[in-house]
């Protein structure tokens, strides 16, 4: 299985950082810039892991999680949350919504990869042949 990963984050900077981080690994990479877009992309791609930002315009991470839990096909999709702050008020609702893991930004690359690898297989991408 080649895992599909969806990054939902309004920051292009964070999406670029994450894409670069996962580039050496065999996976399909998808992106969305807010929760509404994320729901559409998730329904289209059926990812094996969603890396979801908390604080976004239009529909934030918490809103997207609520909506995902109402959609049969997305209800069990593993979600790893990225948050800018780690207060109890932020984290408590995430646990209730079944978020598999969370990381506070700025994350350490090795932490994020280690946690992602508990959810999906991360195998090195074979070198491209000319």
């Amino acid at each position: 299985m080649i895992p599909k990963i969806l990054s939902v984050d309004d920051s292009r900077t964070t999406r670029l950082l994450l894409a670069r981080l996962f580039r050496p690994y065999l996976c399909e990479w998808f992106e969305a810039a807010d929760g509404e877009d994320g729901l559409v992309r998730a329904a289209e791609t059926r990812p094996h892991l969603i890396i979801l930002d908390y604080n976004m315009p239009i529909l934030d991470g918490l809103g997207m999680l609520h909506r995902m839990r109402e959609i049969q096909e997305l209800r069990r999709t593993p979600v790893m949350m990225l948050t800018a702050e780690a207060g109890l008020a932020t984290l408590a609702p995430l646990a209730r919504l079944g978020v598999r893991d969370y990381l506070t930004k700025p994350f350490r690359d090795e932490d994020l990869l280690a946690r992602a690898s508990r959810i999906i297989p991360l195998n090195p991408r074979p070198p491209e042949t000319p």
């Binding site: 309004d10 604080n55 948050t83 800018a84 702050e85 780690a86 109890l88 008020a89 932020t90 506070t104």
Partner: peptide, 30 residues
């Protein structure tokens, strides 16, 4: 511009966490 927005967001998040130990947590706007 996006880099500075995200940078500010991360700094604000750390500050909010620092202040949360003295009272209720903050909600961060985008």
């Amino acid at each position: 511009s996006d880099l500075i927005g995200e940078f500010t967001n991360l700094v604000a998040g750390r500050i909010a966490s620092g202040l949360a130990s003295h009272g209720p947590g903050f909600t961060l706007q985008t």
